[in-house]
Nucleic acid binder design. Sequence first.
DNA 1: CGCATATTCAACCAAACGGTTGACGATCCG
DNA 2: CGGATCGTCAACCGTTTGGTTGAATATGCG
Lengths: 111, 111
Amino acid sequence: MTASLDIIFSALADPTRRAILAMLLEDDMAVTDVAAPFQMSLAAISKHLTILAEASLITQEKRGRINWCKLEPDAMREAFVWMQSFGQFQLLDLDAFERFIAAELTGEILD
Amino acid sequence: MTASLDIIFSALADPTRRAILAMLLEDDMAVTDVAAPFQMSLAAISKHLTILAEASLITQEKRGRINWCKLEPDAMREAFVWMQSFGQFQLLDLDAFERFIAAELTGEILD
DNA sequence: CGCATATTCAACCAAACGGTTGACGATCCG
DNA sequence: CGGATCGTCAACCGTTTGGTTGAATATGCG
């Protein structure tokens, strides 16, 4: 269940949270290990993780004492898809693009 | 001059502001016309537009009484690019794709 | 000029945010 | 058992956010 764009974007709006997501790109991590590089308290990081989890950007799974944090790309994809409407970076219409290249190439070859 | 990801993402985190951006996809608009579909006051919309402008997601250009609002896709692209690091939804490498299609087509033609 | 239109400014408000500290509940381990 | 580790909860605090209203500032126009 992915969250709303409101929740996703506001979760992404904080640099600490973006840094956490980048760390989780490497591997799943325990809360304490996530917190290690930051100056702020463990409780603050725990809150950030809750916000990321509410945005479905991560999931948390408790095994023993350890609460494992795992990156969950689906929510980000949702935001990504919304953004595609804007500007020059739409996903390509591959078929159209292929026809275009084909026409271009055929022209060159026939020259 | 594009703004920081903090500013861009938090600008995108509000549904009113995302709706405004979607409207500006159609065409440039005056502040009053942007405000028309919304329940809230004109002043509130004016503030939202300021936030969008500070995020470089739009530009505003005053001509006479009218303050024209224009979508500015570069800032969104910045956020878009940041997101590419996460998950399976990277943009295509257009050059590589073109080479691929070219090779494919050339093959067909030489057959 | 004088009025209407377009937009921002300023003050205010309640709610949310991002952080702190200290206490608490689980779990592991000697 | 008892101590250490992992993590969250609760209360608190200052700042930011998203909205309001009313006044102020341009600009256009008859």
